[in-house]
Design a binder for these strands. Structure first.
Length: 480
RNA sequence: CGGGGCGUGGCUCAGCCUGGUAGAGCACAGCGUUUGGGACGCUGGGGUCGUGGGUUCAAAUCCCUCCGCCCCGACCA
């Protein structure tokens, strides 16, 4: 039974998404600043959980965090040709301080390659200084024409890694390592969202990059969401900013750089991958609150008995489970059940007078909403029981998302089949077309090549559009 | 930036066509009864009807200006 105020997915997916964001209290429109949102505490807690999981992996792979200025001299952005073209239209520009005009305008960073490149050029002298492995957690701004909470906002939060290497091989190794061991690993294991790892086409790559890799996830409407990108920037930015080093033979060499990022968009991915018509569904490993306890009582005698039991039951959970006791007065249990379902807490424990009597509790799992996901279990060994259940929910969310993706992915041989399939989900096909072919398809059917998957069948085929012999498969889809 | 829609208590909206000085539901506050899947009663607070101008004895309502927001496209994490 869908909740009041939540538009069912089948009726209007886009409205459903907005209803979840509002219903789960994740964000508020910053209506006084066009295109921006307020991350409310519940939404920000999700970001903090995402940050933790990524930061651990970023550090485990040898990087350190630093912080660079928000404002960048406009001339910096202009130094790399493709980069200017890619970002110029969406720059916020600062031209004035108080009443005084600035001699050179500053821009609010849309991404930090340029200002970081400037400093790297200063810091790097020798091959002994490399690789230089730095990440920053920051906000960036891009004037997007159309915004949606978390998925695309004028200001967003992200991490951006910027590294420098001696040669192409080392830069490429870094780019792919981030893609596999940081991004895909985090999104699949912690967020329970399966991803396709792949290479971007020339048309879709980062402005100024040599090669862009990405992880693409499928949302419940069959559309693709780019969940993370990792770029081998080649020597483009190194040349523009003069990042060079002296090698073992005392020869000056231009360095190779990479950059990679994921943003608060991941919160959007999380919502659209798992949530249902009852509300948000948060995977247990990521959930700021994993278990909520709802005490149930009718009078003071029952109240003290139940609250006493709740205290005993939850005492061994401390340090083991992230839990909350919902002892708010004046709200009925039924109201609380619905509210916590709306907010996506993975497991709910109900403790009432009957449970106190029998030494049991009612246990409800969020991935199976309503009464169907409810069972009665003994209080003895409850912590272990819940830990097992959380692991099971985590796995089942991943399995469900993977099955959904598989069910909505099809191999297509012809352009007509392609057109039909992108209405359902991902179309996998051989491709030997040009950037112009890709643009034409985008104009005609609003789908783009999301990526050239790293996993390829290894055999050749026929291009879906040109009919030419092709060596590689691509994924076509409509994207967020 | 193009196309469409909408601005009325915190939210969703009615009232506008046919001008007469603002309503409902939800939410909120107090009290009481309730509490195992979104409780109920009573009482109460809260709106210069987006902005500026015009018409009129009189404007939420009619006319014009501006502003803002939402939706749909093209651009993008």
């Amino acid at each position: 039974m869908p909740k009041d105020g939540i538009t069912p997915r089948a009726q209007d997916y886009s409205q459903w998404y907005l209803d979840i964001v509002r219903g789960a209290d994740l964000a508020d429109y910053a209506e006084v600043v066009r295109g921006c949102i307020v991350f409310k505490p519940t939404g920000y807690a999700l970001w903090e959980a995402i940050q933790r999981g990524l930061d651990d992996r970023i550090k485990a792979t040898g990087h350190m965090n630093a912080y660079f200025p928000l404002l960048i001299p406009k001339s910096f952005i202009m130094k790399e040709a493709e980069h200017v073209e890619g970002f110029a239209p969406e720059l916020f520009e600062v031209t004035q301080i108080g009443a005084n005009e600035l001699p050179e305008p500053l821009v609010v960073r849309p991404t930090s390659e340029t200002i970081i490149g400037y400093f790297y050029a200063k810091w790097i002298r020798s091959y002994r200084d490399l690789p230089l492995l730095i990440n920053q957690w920051a906000n960036v701004m891009r004037a997007e024409m159309r915004t949606r909470p978390f998925l695309r906002t004028a200001e967003f939060l992200w991490q951006e890694g910027h590294t420098v290497h001696v040669d192409e091989a080392d830069a490429e190794r870094e780019t792919l390592m981030i893609l596999h061991d940081v991004y895909a690993d985090f999104v699949e294991k912690e967020m329970a969202v399966p991803v396709i790892k792949g290479l971007k086409t020339e048309k879709e790559k980062f402005p100024g990059a040599l090669r862009s890799y990405c992880i693409e996830a499928m949302m419940q409407d069959g559309r693709a969401l780019q969940a993370g990108t990792s770029h081998n920037l080649g020597q483009n930015f190194a040349r523009a900013f003069n990042i060079s080093y002296t090698d073992q033979n005392n020869t000056i060499q231009t360095a190779w750089t990479t950059s990679w990022g994921v943003s608060t968009r991941l919160i959007g991915a999380l919502i659209m991958a798992h949530s249902d018509d009852e509300g948000l569904v948060v995977p247990p490993r990521l959930a700021p609150t994993q278990v909520v306890v709802v005490p149930i009582y009718k009078n003071d005698a029952e109240k003290s008995a139940v609250l006493g039991a709740v205290e005993q039951i939850t005492a061994p959970w401390k340090g083991r489970l992230r839990f909350k006791i919902d002892d708010r007065e004046n709200l009925t249990p039924g109201f609380k059940f619905n509210e916590w379902e709306l907010k996506g807490v993975p497991v709910r424990v109900e403790v009432g007078p009957k449970d106190v009597e029998k030494g049991s509790v009612a246990l409800a799992r969020r991935d199976i909403p309503g009464k169907a996901g409810k069972s009665f279990v003994p209080q003895a060994g409850l912590a272990e029981h819940i830990e097992r259940l959380l692991a099971e929910i985590q796995q089942s969310l991943y399995d469900r998302a993977l099955k959904f993706r598989d069910d909505h992915t099809a191999d297509v041989q012809t352009y007509d089949e392609l057109k039909a399939q992108i209405e359902r989900g991902f179309a996998r096909c051989y491709w030997a077309g040009t950037t112009e072919d890709e643009k034409r398809i985008q104009d005609e059917v609003r789908a783009t090549i999301r990526c050239i998957p790293l996993d390829q069948p290894g055999t050749g085929g026929t291009c879906v559009y040109t009919g030419k012999p092709a060596t590689r498969q691509v994924i076509f889809a409509r994207a967020y």
